[in-house]
Structures are given as structure tokens and as C-alpha cells.
């Protein structure tokens, strides 16, 4: 009796809040959860004019196909390697940059730098692809000219299997680090200045202040960003690779997404594409859960 009335009064008190939540809840349900049912076509031989329900079941055929395809191993391996380095550097570089920028005293200088470095984020890879072909050109490209000043042989960045992955990772980091640093910069701005004052009183120099105050202060947000990045471990960046790769570097640069794009382009194979998407999501899901558990145990930090 008492319980019910407590619940009733709770509802009475908070129903407008729930009502506010309702649209978001419905949108999530309709646009995020219901469509997941469409993933069944990964297990069917889907023909658009037959419909999802009536297309025949073929079980794990598409998944088998993905794994028996002679190139699959190479493609999955490329994806993991490129994505792994992108995610690692994609967190480390912005953190470092944010720490360095935070030490800059002049606001005007700081703001200018910050604006300049996050600009590339807004350029699409279609444009940047063309720019990088020029910048990294063997003959007359600015990078190879600089290397030439030091007596180095010109490097065929986009056509050499030794260099392609590094090129892809570094150009991606260059494009995104400024934008990614915004989160860390705002975390740094939120650190209580009293802590630094107290540390100074105790005789700590800038380095010690960074180690004992700044880094611990932004650690939680670094962990959040890193954990979320793990979910993208199967995404090595279609836009970028599609605009930079070529048959010379298929060996090291062909990733799952570009591979599926080429197969899909041939015959609009929806089911196969869905199967690959599902496979990627499943891996991402497992990785997020695992890492979250580990972080919870080790770093005692929880997001959810």
C-alpha cells in the first residue's frame, strides 16, 4: 500500500519529465531498433522485388562466403591493422596536442592554432585525396622535395606497400587531431586552478604539475574516448582509403569496406553487404563490452 502510493506520487511528480523523454524513446525505437530486424537479410538470399519476408533462407552462406573468399584474410588483416593504429594515434596525438596547447599562455595565439588545426576536419576525402596525390607526388611533391633536401630517395607513398598504411594513418591523424583535441581542451579548462596554485606552493614545476594534476584530471575523458573508439576497430575509413588506394597497394590497403563496395557495385548484393555489416558490428560490440569490463576492473571507471 505504502509502496504503491510512493510510486504513484513519484509518477505524479515526474510524469512531465517522462513525457519529454517519450519522443526520443520512440525515435530510438522506430529508427534504431525496429530496422535491426532488417538485418535478417544477412541470412537470406534477398531479392528486392520478392521482399524481405519471402526471400529464401540460406543460413550462414554469406558469412561462409566472406571467409572462404581468397582475399578475406588479407582484407580483414588490413582493416584491423589500419584501424588499430588510427584509433591509438587518434587518441594519443590529440591528448598530447591538447596538453601542449594548454601550456601556451597567449590566448590569441592559442585560439589561432586551434582554429587552424581543426580546419582539415571539415574537408572531405574526395578533395583531400586529390590534394594528397599532389603533396605526396614522387616528382615535385612537397614532401619528397623536403626529403630530397636531406638527400633521401623519393618515396612513392601512395604506390608502395611499405608506405601505404603509414601514409593512410598519418594523413588521417593529421586531418582529425585538431577536432578531436577540442574535447580534451575543454576537459583541461575545467581543471580547478586552485590545484595548480597549491602545487606551486608545494614547489612543483610545470612538468610535475602535468604529471600529477593535469593528466589525472583528463584521464576519465581519455578513457571514454578510447573506449568508444574501440567500437570502430573494424572501420578503417572507407572515404579515405577509397580516394587514396589503387591496385598497387591492394595488398596492404584494401579494407573490408572497399572490398564490399567493389563486390556490391558489381551486382547490388544487398544480403552479402548486410552480412559483412553485421559481422563488423558483432566484432565491435564484443570489443566494447570486453574493454569496458577491463577498464571497469583496472581503472575503476564506468561510463554507463
Amino acid at each position: 500500500m505504502r509502496e504503491t502510493s510512493k510510486f504513484a506520487s513519484y509518477c505524479k511528480r515526474t510524469w512531465p519529465l517522462h513525457l519529454l523523454l517519450l519522443p526520443a524513446f520512440l525515435i530510438t525505437l522506430i529508427y534504431q531498433y525496429i530496422p535491426m530486424l532488417g538485418a535478417v537479410i544477412a541470412f537470406k538470399d534477398y531479392k528486392p522485388w520478392v521482399g524481405i519476408l519471402d526471400s529464401p533462407w540460406i543460413g550462414l552462406e554469406h558469412f561462409k562466403y566472406l571467409f572462404t573468399f581468397p582475399d578475406s584474410k588479407q582484407v580483414i588483416q588490413n582493416t584491423l591493422i589500419i584501424a588499430f593504429f588510427k584509433q591509438i594515434l587518434g587518441v594519443l596525438v590529440p591528448v598530447l596536442f591538447a596538453l601542449l596547447l594548454n601550456e601556451v599562455a597567449k590566448t590569441a595565439f592559442k585560439k589561432t592554432i586551434q582554429t587552424l588545426v581543426y580546419m582539415p576536419h571539415f574537408l572531405s576525402w574526395v578533395i583531400l585525396g586529390g590534394i594528397f596525390v599532389d603533396v605526396l607526388a614522387v616528382q615535385g611533391g612537397i614532401v619528397n622535395r623536403l626529403l630530397g633536401l636531406f638527400g633521401a630517395e623519393p618515396i612513392f607513398f601512395l604506390g608502395s606497400n611499405d608506405w601505404f598504411r603509414a601514409t593512410v594513418v598519418l594523413t588521417d591523424v593529421w586531418k582529425e587531431f585538431g577536432f578531436a583535441a577540442i574535447v580534451f581542451l575543454s576537459a583541461l579548462a575545467a581543471v580547478n586552478p586552485n590545484l595548480y596554485e597549491a602545487a606551486e606552493m608545494d614547489g612543483a614545476n610545470r612538468w610535475r604539475q602535468t604529471i600529477y594534476i593535469t593528466i589525472p584530471a583528463i584521464m576519465p575523458i581519455v578513457v571514454v574516448v578510447a573506449t568508444l573508439a574501440l567500437g570502430r576497430i573494424m572501420n578503417a575509413g572507407f572515404d579515405q582509403i577509397f580516394n587514396l588506394y589503387n591496385p598497387l597497394v591492394y595488398e596492404t590497403g584494401d579494407i573490408i569496406d572497399t572490398f564490399v563496395y567493389r563486390i556490391g557495385l558489381e551486382g547490388g548484393q544487398f544480403s552479402f553487404g548486410t552480412a559483412v555489416g553485421l559481422f563488423k558490428s558483432a566484432i565491435g560490440f564484443v570489443l566494447i563490452i570486453t574493454c569496458y569490463r577491463i577498464l571497469y576492473k583496472v581503472a575503476d571507471y564506468r561510463i554507463f
Binding site: P247, F259, I263, E266, Q269
Partner: peptide, 25 residues
């Protein structure tokens, strides 16, 4: 495109493009 062309076409094109460029390079 026949069934094999659809399922294997991308692979065959890839073999072809790699072989051609690797020989030329």
C-alpha cells in the same frame, strides 16, 4: 552478368589490376 560474374567478378578484377600494375611497375 552471370552468377559467377557477380560473385567472383570483383576478385577477378582485383587479380587483374594487381598483376598488370605490378608487372608495369
Amino acid at each position: 552478368p552471370s552468377e559467377t560474374m557477380q560473385s567472383k567478378g570483383a576478385l577477378l578484377n582485383k587479380l587483374e589490376s594487381e598483376a598488370y600494375l605490378k608487372i608495369i611497375y
